[in-house]
């Protein structure tokens, strides 16, 4: 790897540098990676799965895969975070598929009674609950794309790499997802307090 290339890696993907140090036995790198990556992985898994216990399992499993692949990691081929989000996305998809096998479809596709729950809660936590409830009504891929784009703040090309689809497909998924969310939540404006304080 040339000097320029190593400079790029340090700036573009500091996690890859930490992962290389981890593979060389650096315990401080293990700690930094854990602290950097765990909240992001857990946050994504929780928003996609909507279940803290399952999100916790997925987080631990995804990071376990990262630790195992560390000695063979090739710097420059993929960003660590992209690879990790991809593992998380696949683990979440597997769990959602299993869930669909156990739960009647109607219980998933129909949103919970958001009007009632939203009317009772006007605080930001309640709004986030409403967003989460609405997210869980989206199809798996739409939900993953919307969370990655609008909550994790990733760029479309990175989301395309994570979901293994084209950039145009990402744009389509996020647009449809946003339309569905706006429709679901738009009816709850008053209940969510948006007409009161304009926040």
């Amino acid at each position: 790897m040339s000097l320029d290339a190593s400079f790029d890696v340090v700036h573009d993907d500091p996690d890859a540098v930490l992962l290389a140090r981890y593979a060389q036995g650096d315990a401080a790198a293990a700690r930094l990676l854990t602290v950097n990556l765990t909240p992001r992985v857990f946050g994504h898994a929780l928003r996609v799965l909507g279940d803290a216990a399952e999100a916790e399992d997925v987080t631990q499993e995804a990071l376990m895969r990262l630790w195992k692949i560390a000695p063979d990691w090739r710097i420059g081929e993929a960003k660590v975070s992209t690879w990790l989000y991809r593992v998380v996305a696949n683990l979440c998809t597997d769990r959602l598929r299993k869930r669909r096998g156990n739960v009647p479809l109607a219980e998933i596709t129909e949103p919970a009674d958001m009007a009632e729950s939203a009317e009772a809660k006007l605080q930001r936590g309640a709004r986030l609950d409403a967003l989460q409830t609405a997210l869980e009504t989206l199809p798996d891929r739409q939900r993953q794309a919307v969370v990655l784009r609008h909550i994790e703040g990733l760029a479309n090309p990175e989301i395309a790499a994570i979901l293994d689809i084209g950039v145009e497909a990402v744009e389509s998924l996020t647009a449809r997802g946003k339309r569905a969310l706006a429709k679901l939540l738009g009816g709850q404006r008053d209940a969510l307090g948006y007409d009161d304080d304009k926040t």
Partner: peptide
């Protein structure tokens, strides 16, 4: 960001050290 479950960070750190070359 959602609060992490209690002990999750410690368990992941333990995994990291156990798997570390």
């Amino acid at each position: 960001p959602p609060d992490l479950p209690e002990g999750l960070m410690d368990r992941i750190m333990a995994d990291a050290l156990a798997q570390q070359p």
